[in-house]
Design a protein around this nucleic acid. Structure first.
Lengths: 345, 345
DNA sequence: TTGTACGCGTTATCAA
DNA sequence: TTGATAACGCGTACAA
């Protein structure tokens, strides 16, 4: 346990009151701009308060009002470029509306996520935004939280239809579109580096890929769907597996669950001395800051992360401040970013 | 003003106590694992508490203890890749030590920074980490905060010697080294895209550049030092100015204040149809995630952002939890990352 | 081992 | 227009 130490003891209403020989209530009223204070006294009070260096104690305020003006924000991996952009969007709105955010980075660890939610509840945040790291389909924890906890809104990695709103992008459609884009340029042996199968975005992007293949009547081999997780390392390993397939069934193009995975895969491809898109074409999903800068610029799906953040936090704040804010699954529309990694330019 | 709404009214100690017909103190003791509770009663209490869904109210706890286990973290620009890494480092430690962080993104706006500090004080955070956006040399605000507020530690963009610790990297030395690296490969007409002159890191990196030039006895022209700020746009504009210089005084190499500025500058160079490093060599500072990936990989200074975050928050927590933690300016050692943009490989 | 009284800093409420 | 009192949920200090 940590040692305790009093921080430079702060001035209270009572002290200001005593210094002026008025009641604390009068000081409170003056400082909070209530109407029922004589202009004269208000002036005296404000002057003295600033002299003494009074700062309102929000902890005490929150205890009385049950309102902390604080939101919890839970993200799986802050080093994935998508998330800082989401946070920027969230911040932009919370700044306007005078909320603050408690940020938690769970490093893709669901236990840490659970612990964080408990802590946020104890801190009595007014609401919680979550991009979940849950990879099983046991939703009991969140069902419980949603029933008994503060308002909660999912974003990006959602758990749908258990009583919370969800802000995501049109994953299925976008994955279908980008796969179709490859198909329309002549590819048929197309593989998919997929996320964890139980996670919404993993499921949806896989579904989009499959739909596009089906529509084109291109058969899909089981070996072409390789689980890669969400990060560079997983992409690298998964791609190596694909490259070990014998020539006749080796894919000529790859649809990656996201850009980091694509970057890992690209490393694996280059390591084998192969070239992109000549030997293998590849596309991503995110439009990571790096996507346009690599020597073979990556074709990808642009995910408007900043917008996702703004929409999610707006939804949350509306839910907090109004009784009848409806539950919604909002899909933000993405756009294709065609570059050269798909060999389509 | 926001409407008020009670969140799913939380269970209190008192309610648990009433349900069991014991005093709230006994419940408090049981839940906080104090020794002086009969094992029997403790069991009953814990059981009932979990049945009722009791969650400790940290707001009330904080009011009593004057301890929030919350730290404020103020950063200028979350979309600059350096900062998410710092935040990751901070998070890693706060997770271990059971603190939470209130994150504020000031978007390089000092007024927003000031407002944030006031809010954090009102929320009674136990301490504050700041990378400041202050670009003048009027330090009165921070002098006041350091005198009257909670413990404060600067990182990266520090204000030194006004009574707070500072965690940064060896900016001067690193800038000198990377400039020297260019010099040792035959460059003498070397320009500098500089940050705001009043900001520590701007000053120090400029100083390092100048030192290296002086040691090599290479004259430095005024036109070669162009203020660029910290971001892509500024780098682009500043580089255009350099490229407009007449042939004989146009620089052959550029030392950039950081990587984002270098990327902006690179765009400007390419736009003129020039090649890197053949026509102009360029080096950065940060080792941004993009640095190694662009088609002409960027030579730069690797700044261990994750370490900066860890060191800074450790310093802060030590200051909070102990009376005699000394003030320190800690410089974390960087390393040169030689790639091809300097034409030295 | 358990309980009572009080205070942390603030505001709502009612009285003056 | 101002003041006194109680309450928010918890823990310290003391008493039983």
């Amino acid at each position: 346990m940590a040692k305790k130490k009093k921080t430079g003891s702060n001035v209270t209403l009572k002290e200001v009151a005593k210094a002026l020989d008025v009641s604390t209530m009068t000081v409170s009223r003056a400082i909070n701009n209530r109407s029922n204070v004589k202009t004269q006294t208000r002036k005296r009070i404000l002057k003295k308060a600033s002299e003494l260096g009074y700062t309102p104690n929000h902890v005490a305020k929150s205890l009385v009002s049950s309102k902390t003006y604080t939101l919890g924000v839970i993200i799986p991996k802050i080093s994935h470029a998508f998330f800082p952009e989401v946070v920027r969007g969230i911040e932009e709105i919370t700044f306007q509306k005078n909320y603050q955010i408690l940020l938690v980075n769970t490093t893709e660890d669901f236990d840490r996520e659970k612990k964080a939610i408990e802590t946020l509840r104890s801190k009595r945040v007014d609401g919680i935004l979550v991009s979940s790291s849950l990879v099983t389909d046991d939703y009991s924890f969140y069902k419980q939280v949603i029933r008994t906890g503060p308002p909660l809104v999912f974003f990006d990695r959602c758990i749908e239809d258990i009583g919370a709103s969800c802000i995501s992008v049109n994953d299925t459609t976008a994955a279908k579109q980008i796969t179709k884009h490859l198909i329309s340029h002549g590819y048929s042996k197309i593989a998919h580096l997929s996320g964890p199968p139980r996670v919404t975005i993993g499921k949806k992007r896989l579904e989009g890929y499959l739909k596009a293949m089906k529509t084109a009547k291109h058969p899909v081999r089981d070996e072409w769907i390789v689980e890669s997780g969400f990060h560079e390392g997983g992409g690298y390993e998964a791609m190596k597996k694909l490259l070990m397939l014998p020539g006749e069934i080796r894919p000529r193009a790859v649809v990656s669950i996201n850009d980091p995975v694509a970057f890992g895969a690209i490393d694996a491809i280059w390591e084998q001395g192969l070239s992109i898109p000549h030997d293998v074409a590849i596309v991503g999903f995110t439009n990571d800051i790096r996507a346009g800068m690599i020597s073979c610029p990556l074709t990808t799906v642009h995910q408007p992360a900043y917008e996702v953040g703004k929409k999610a936090v707006n939804k949350l704040i509306n839910t907090i401040e109004s009784d009848d804010e409806p539950l919604e699954n909002i899909e933000i529309i993405t756009s294709l970013k065609i570059r050269s990694s798909c060999g389509c330019m």
